[in-house]
Write a protein that binds this DNA or RNA. Sequence first.
DNA 1: GTGAAAGCGCTAACAT
DNA 2: ATGTTAGCGCTTTCAC
Lengths: 323, 323
Amino acid sequence: MKDVASAAGVALKTVSRVVNGEPGVHPATAERVRAAIDALGYSRNESARMLRRGRTATVGLVIEDIADPFYSGLGRAVEQVAIDHGCLLLSGSSGEDPARERELVRTFCARRVDGLIVVPAGDDHSYLRPELDAGTPAVFVDRPPGPGIDVDTVLCDNAGGAERAVGHLLSYGHRRIAFLGDSPSIFTAAERLAGYRRALGGLFDERLVVMRPPGLGGVRADLERLLGGEAPPTAVFTGNGRLTVATLRALAGRRLALVGFDDFELADLLSPGVTVVAQDPAGLGRVATERLFSRLRGDRGPAQHMQLPVRLIPRGSGELPPE
Amino acid sequence: MKDVASAAGVALKTVSRVVNGEPGVHPATAERVRAAIDALGYSRNESARMLRRGRTATVGLVIEDIADPFYSGLGRAVEQVAIDHGCLLLSGSSGEDPARERELVRTFCARRVDGLIVVPAGDDHSYLRPELDAGTPAVFVDRPPGPGIDVDTVLCDNAGGAERAVGHLLSYGHRRIAFLGDSPSIFTAAERLAGYRRALGGLFDERLVVMRPPGLGGVRADLERLLGGEAPPTAVFTGNGRLTVATLRALAGRRLALVGFDDFELADLLSPGVTVVAQDPAGLGRVATERLFSRLRGDRGPAQHMQLPVRLIPRGSGELPPE
DNA sequence: GTGAAAGCGCTAACAT
DNA sequence: ATGTTAGCGCTTTCAC
């Protein structure tokens, strides 16, 4: 920049004005400066700019795993909104590990990101208190923060969706409906269990509920046990996309009514097509990031808690009759 | 930091030493400093550190679309290697738009990323010359840079894979094998066409080749035209994952032998299972990023051009006999 | 073992 | 319309 200034025969500040498109520079001078910039291949050092301005034009995104289609769809939407606001995205995967989540948030904050979008892995977020107090806004997506942290949240209607899924199966005559859910420590899994239970009412039978992390081996064994027992289920409700896929693999062609939470590519091409309760991952990301930017624009109102609707997509597997 | 120093009754430099774990600080002093840090909730300002050190501990990743499973798998691997080296990831999607690719690279360079991993969208990368000369290493993945830019590349064996795919269909008795590829301006599409052609030799018939961007409408029409013509193909080779899926949708259950380039989730659950030539997206990302870090470690050798193998996974659709 | 001073490259505030 | 000065928060260099 110093070089550009002397090459153009102006002061530093004038170069700064030209680079930032600030008014009050004579067109001829501006032209001279631009020529010097091109000749020297100068580009503004954003590190210095950030330091001086106190803003980094960066949003930090902590998600579970960018390679998971649900989260990559969410991430893409976050990226798009960030770019629309002139910000770049610093991202990291927590891999469902609270310590890693915390480490990522810490690192992002040390880099002074302007704001955070977090899909939390843990349930203690007291470590965020200082950052929030220091004015770094955070929006939690897909899952809420632990107790005592009152930030904006954007969730989907987990319980309602589960209720719809199970209601759908009930309406097709099923009375024994199993639930294969993720670990109950995960917020969404617990919510979906609650919706499942609410829909079943008196039909609820805890022997038909299995909750544990996905993994084909486990799902296969669980399914064999359920189907081999006395009074086996005639339908199954799977609590997330990975469990749905694992269940389809484990079923290996056996016909069993199934509704899954989360839509996934090719669900329509399987036979039968897989009936799902579809969330809108991109919508979650978009709404959350817009919320973040309205905080960055100065919104100091109380924390907002938004819930996005889900929709049931019948494709065949959820409309199979009992036995 | 100033506050920490005065709270602990030491100089700035001593705080700096403690924060960075540099030797030469009395344990008692260090303890006092650490106490002050905790009390004040201090955390090092990385922007300032970056400015001073000239290194940002950040890798820039430019890909086509983070929501595409191929690229999100690649991105995850890049992230992992970056983290293993203490770096964070700044990422952006180009959406197959050369201008956007260039803009992302420019922005990343202005932020002084230590290095770049690029899946290029365009074929003119002369804009990278100044950055490369300035010492910012770049590794191109999945597709090579345009002419005149000699950087490390990590590609997969596109032509060889296509040859394998078509050879597989030939060995099952097919003689009229169509190729549905992406736009020929895309490097991988052109390479796969070359492999297809090489495998067919004298059987090559340009009327069986359609190359254009994916999109269900187009694929459906192309397929109808191919299958409705005189001497229709008995098999089809699809040039990437999206085209494979679009083709499966367009086929809507009609049996036609098919081998696709790129593996995808659930390919094994369709009936018949979809035979594919599988790339290793995570491998591409990992190898490329390791290459980048060896450059950052000071490797000044000539540009390396790596090629990762692909493997054919027979699942049924590629083993269907003609008609 | 510890500290003082200079400066990374930029922008904000205040001249001119 | 343009320039000068100070300083963002840190690390580096060199002195103690």
